[in-house]
């Protein structure tokens, strides 16, 4: 047992590059004892190395290497990149920053194409269906955006407040600034904060808007409500606005925010909502008879590792449904 622990420690040291000569010698002897040891160790080492793909240092090294390489071969850059103005360059750097951040926060997610509409005063980040992204705002606040969401924000915030507009779902980590409240306009809800972490769900095709507070304090009101009526949310609470009625309830934080970790947990959600989520995650269109499914609710969890077909197969096993696949389209029917 002691022996086993020793070798584990030595392997860790070796991978980290901090193993002593004696430890390396010990490792080598251990490897020679048994073919399985070799197999075990070299597979671990391989995984250790492969998990560096996406490492920021490696990416900038690639950029530098490309510079050297293209100097050597005199690769002509495409015209477009030569004629871009300074402003677009700034936009480009911003997009690049989004990408880099996306690497750090969301390296588990396949593709992040974030087209940025460069306008004079405001910037818009669109996250396509089937992907996710992360945005760093001018004040240092961070927003992770779920599939099919849009965030608009000014290139630089005004003196008095930090105003952004969200359609879809976002998880906000707001940089603290007592003098400049951070305001999110999300469909029919207006959320005002000073510095905190919270999730906002405001998809157009969902019947309600939700804000879940993880830490800090937020102030909510209905959009366009001129009265002073505001709701103060405490950490662990969720406000949900449906048909102009605001409801406060205890939130399951993990449930509301684990999409940021590429997981999807759901509890007692109706069938049509599960389908709407799947449509966004997988960028497919799902057609079904709303009437036939109105009584079904679902609880479950999955990670975005499965294909849509695996999910549908699982669905088929638990519910009397059949599905048929078309091009980027799925038809689901209820089987009596």
């Amino acid at each position: 047992m002691k022996e086993k622990q020793d070798i584990e420690l030595i392997i860790t040291h070796f991978l980290d590059g901090s193993a002593s000569d004696a430890e390396v010698l010990h490792l080598k002897e251990w490897l020679e004892v048994d073919v399985n040891n070799k197999k075990d160790f070299f597979h671990l080492k391989d995984l250790w190395e492969a998990s560096q793909v996406g490492n920021a240092a490696g990416m900038s090294a690639a950029q530098i290497a490309w510079k050297t390489f293209s100097d050597k071969t005199k690769v002509k850059s495409p015209k477009a990149t030569r004629h871009i103005g300074r402003r677009i360059l700034v936009e480009f750097i911003k997009v690049a920053a989004v990408f880099v951040l996306a690497f750090v926060v969301f390296y588990g997610i396949d593709k992040n194409q974030v087209p940025v509409d460069a306008q004079l005063a405001s910037t818009k980040v669109n996250v396509p269906l089937g992907s996710k992204s992360s945005v760093l705002l001018p004040d240092g606040s961070e927003v992770m955006l779920n599939s099919g969401s849009t965030l608009s924000y000014p290139v630089s915030f005004s003196e008095s407040k930090r105003l952004v507009e969200l359609s879809g779902e976002g998880f906000f980590k707001v940089a603290h600034d007592q003098s400049k409240p951070f305001v999110v306009n999300a469909k029919d809800m207006e959320i005002t904060v000073l510095g905190t972490e919270f999730n906002v769900m405001a998809y157009d095709d969902f019947d309600r808007t939700e804000t879940t507070l993880v830490a800090g304090k937020v102030m909510l009101k209905k959009a366009g409500d001129v009265s002073e009526k505001v709701v103060i949310l405490k950490p662990g609470q969720k406000a949900s606005l449906k048909d102009n009625v605001m409801k406060i309830e205890k939130a399951n934080i993990e449930l509301e925010t684990n999409w940021t970790e590429n997981k999807f947990y759901f509890e007692s959600i109706p069938f049509h909502e599960l389908m709407a989520r799947l449509e966004k995650w997988y960028d497919v269109e799902i057609e079904f008879d709303h009437e036939a499914f109105s009584n079904l609710t679902y609880t479950g969890k999955f990670r975005n590792e499965e294909t849509i077909w695996q999910v549908l197969d699982a669905l088929q096993m638990t519910t009397p449904v059949r599905y048929k696949a078309g091009h980027r389209k799925v038809f689901i029917t209820y089987k009596k």
Binding site: A50, S51, V53, D110, K263
Partner: peptide
């Protein structure tokens, strides 16, 4: 090697899980 197998994405995904 996993690098050859283009497993980078899967590794990253497994890591985040």
């Amino acid at each position: 090697s996993l690098l050859q197998k283009e497993m980078g994405n899967s590794v990253m995904r497994a890591l985040s899980n």
